[in-house]
């Protein structure tokens, strides 16, 4: 058998939420078309580090394995991305893995993204249809609008845009671009639109839209190509009109 090609990985580990992080190196036998997750699975199968010492298997999160759930996001060679679609062949070696430290680290590469789901609740990122009577069928949506909205609906709450944002950190309570863009999505929906004004109020709450500083890393980093900065600027325009209307008064409701 020919000599095996090895890949070198340097992984930032952390045993539990409050523990000190440390680095551990691994040499992993290369296979064709390997992705970062299959390399991690190899470590799980054979938890021995580069020094030949027995260690605990590296922990990470995953779900879909096809870049639609967002659970496997981590910082790979300095940039946050999904480990399921990060191909070893396309990565510089040694491959460095770190958790997305913008979020609380649970263990090794797994983080807790609860804050993102809380933000979605804060900005009412849903179409309310529950009530005391049957609302009947919703309005139809023009196809052109549906296609446009579909792009925004691709968000998987992965957290990459928050990790990339210099204004999302311990010093600030900025909710980040993902939830803001979802507001634009739900405001576009013919029934969701009924709650536009409420969402606008929620978006201008502490840590909302105004905490964006336009570094625009989010739009570069988003794996789904969501036009985050366009959504933010569009909301900014609405917020301008909204504040004029609520200060000077207007008959234009919703």
């Amino acid at each position: 058998m020919a000599e095996e090609t090895m890949i070198k990985m340097i992984i930032q580990r952390q045993d539990e939420p409050e523990a000190q992080p440390y680095e551990e190196e691994f040499d992993i036998p290369y296979r064709d078309n390997m992705n970062v997750i299959s390399a991690l699975m190899e470590i799980r199968r054979n938890p021995v580090n580069a020094k030949g010492e027995e260690t605990t298997p590296v922990y990470w999160d995953m779900g879909c394995l096809e870049e639609v759930c967002g659970a496997c996001s981590m910082v790979i060679n300095g940039k946050a991305m999904q480990s399921c679609t990060a191909l070893i062949d396309q990565l510089e070696q040694p491959v460095r893995l770190e958790p997305m430290r913008t979020f609380p680290v649970m263990r090794d590469l797994a983080v807790d993204r609860t804050q993102m789901f809380d933000s979605l609740k804060q900005v009412k990122a849903w179409v309310p249809i529950d009530g005391t009577y049957d609302l009947g069928e919703g309005q139809r949506m023009p196809e052109s609008k549906r296609q446009w909205a579909y792009e925004l609906s691709k968000c998987m709450t992965c957290g990459v845009c928050l990790e990339a944002c210099p204004n999302v950190n311990d010093n600030s309570d900025f909710i980040g671009p993902a939830a803001l863009s979802q507001v634009r999505l739900f405001n576009t929906h013919p029934t969701g639109e009924y709650h536009k004004a409420e969402r606008m109020e929620a978006v201008l709450d502490e840590g909302g839209l105004q905490a964006c500083g336009n570094a625009q890393n989010c739009v570069e980093a988003c794996p789904k190509g969501i036009p985050l900065t366009t959504s933010i600027a569009a909301l900014n325009r609405e917020a301008t009109l909204h504040s004029f209307k609520s200060f000077f008064g207007s008959d234009h409701h919703v």
Binding site: V75, G78, K79, A164, P166, N167, N169, N171, S172, G213, N214, A215, Q216, N217, E220, A221
Partner: peptide
């Protein structure tokens, strides 16, 4: 309240931001 991440995300707008 900003935390620079230019080293990892050296994009033009991020530079302008900092």
């Amino acid at each position: 309240t900003a935390k620079s991440n230019l080293k990892r995300y050296g994009y033009f707008r991020n530079w302008m931001f900092m």
